[in-house]
Design a protein around this nucleic acid. Structure first.
Lengths: 244, 244
DNA sequence: TGTACATCAGTGAACGCGCGTTCACTGATGTAC
DNA sequence: TGTACATCAGTGAACGCGCGTTCACTGATGTAC
């Protein structure tokens, strides 16, 4: 409880940081399945048993990596959103900015992205600790759309009817987000948002997981097109001039 | 080369079938990463070395499983398309039918689906053998849209401008598919198709990989909504009556 | 039909590897008087 | 400031496990005369 024990805690935190950094390196190099505590210890020049002073188990290390990845992605996308907002860009451009930010991070960290958005690691079940960090990106995406909606720049273009079951889920979701306005148009917007959320990550999945390989050369241009199409679906005004 | 050697070949084929069946069972139970030749041999009551009379390596077994999964999914979706076509359903309904068929198969075989559409297995690179089976589903999806397009039931609703890079890729793709009509509207349709292709699987990914867990109760209803939205994006007439 | 030979399925032991995790132990670092 | 004690980082050996793959070998099954 003394002053110096803070020093101990500091070095302790530093070692944990080294461990997670090395683990992240191995994750990036060989994927989550190949991640091993022994290999991390070896790279750090310490006995394999020493790791257990800092990390309870392999699963806990995986959880740490997942949380860190969510936070990194969240911070990256938040920064992009903040920059676009600071430049007072129109809402559509803000939407494009955050989408491209997600994609850029995913392409730079394919294995971490796969850990977050690929098939779940078998035998591992994510604890509740990961829920909050995971919602960070989602919050940014929803925030951009919500302010666009509130500023009138986003209006449901084609009122596609929503089934009762989807309406119920949308209402439930609105309550969770603390939204009191439960108008039909907002329900539609939420349902549309849920779908476009999956569409955005579907687009990135195809690119990161190599499903466009050999079919599409300029995947960035296609992504830009996809984001534009999704924007139209969301209710942004469609572009008229040819895209760059 | 004799008659009876066919009998040998037949029993040989039967054993291979048993091996792949058991491998598929283990894949379904514990995922691709946990698949092991020894475990398969154990379950079949044979020595671990005996497997090598039938399968060259673990990677080859994985390849076989991938090809089989692609074929199974392809056959499933083809059957759904054929049934919808035989019933002379309107093109939108055929589109819905094939989408729901993909989803149904994915939910019934989540691990196999993950093997095909999740993050690639690290250290494994799919040989060219998998390309043809993989294109089977895609061909069905493209076929449904193409006939809808040709019968006039599908017309690009909002002509969203397509960038030169995407146009080039679309043209290239059209040539690969043996399509000679390279009109602007077809280029737009192809670009849109590429995007909706990823969107469809993105939607299924979110459901199979559990990303909607705790957020959406009725995932089937949401999927139905997603397919409808994608249909609108593709250029089908939007539904007017409330969805079921 | 019977016999000598070739083919092939299947065995069991072994090689060499890596893994997660535990445990008794050694030193160093900090704490309290 | 100095000393006795407690805390904690880090070690090395070990347990028990499973894996992919190879290899010399045994029998059974088919083949050719």
């Amino acid at each position: 409880v003394g002053i110096v024990s803070n020093a101990r805690q500091a070095t302790r935190a530093a070692v944990i940081a080294e461990i997670t950094a090395e683990a992240r390196r191995q994750l990036a190099a060989q994927g989550a399945a190949a991640l091993s505590l022994r290999a991390v210890a070896r790279s750090l020049g310490m006995a394999s048993s020493a790791i257990y002073r800092y990390v309870a188990s392999r699963d806990e290390l995986l959880t740490i990596l997942i949380v860190e990845a969510y936070e990194a992605l969240g911070a990256h996308v938040e920064a992009a959103a903040a920059a676009a907002a600071a430049a007072e860009a129109p809402a559509v451009q803000q939407w494009h900015a955050v989408c491209h930010a997600v994609r850029a991070w995913a392409l730079q960290h394919p294995q971490e992205y796969g850990l977050l958005f690929g098939a779940p690691v078998p035998g591992y079940h994510a604890p509740e600790t990961t829920v909050a960090p995971a919602s960070r990106v989602t919050r940014v995406l929803a925030g951009v759309l919500l302010t666009a909606y509130q500023s009138g720049q986003l209006k449901p273009a084609r009122p596609v009817p929503v089934s009762p079951a989807v309406t119920a889920d949308a209402r439930h979701l609105a309550k969770q987000m603390g939204i009191t306005d439960l108008s039909d148009s907002l329900v539609r917007a939420l349902a549309c948002g849920l779908v476009t959320w999956a569409q955005l990550f579907g687009q990135i999945n195809f690119e990161v997981f190599g499903r466009y390989e050999g079919l599409v050369q300029d995947t960035e241009a296609l992504f830009e097109h996809a984001v534009t199409l999704i924007a139209v679906l969301l209710g942004f005004d469609p572009p008229t001039a040819p895209a760059s």
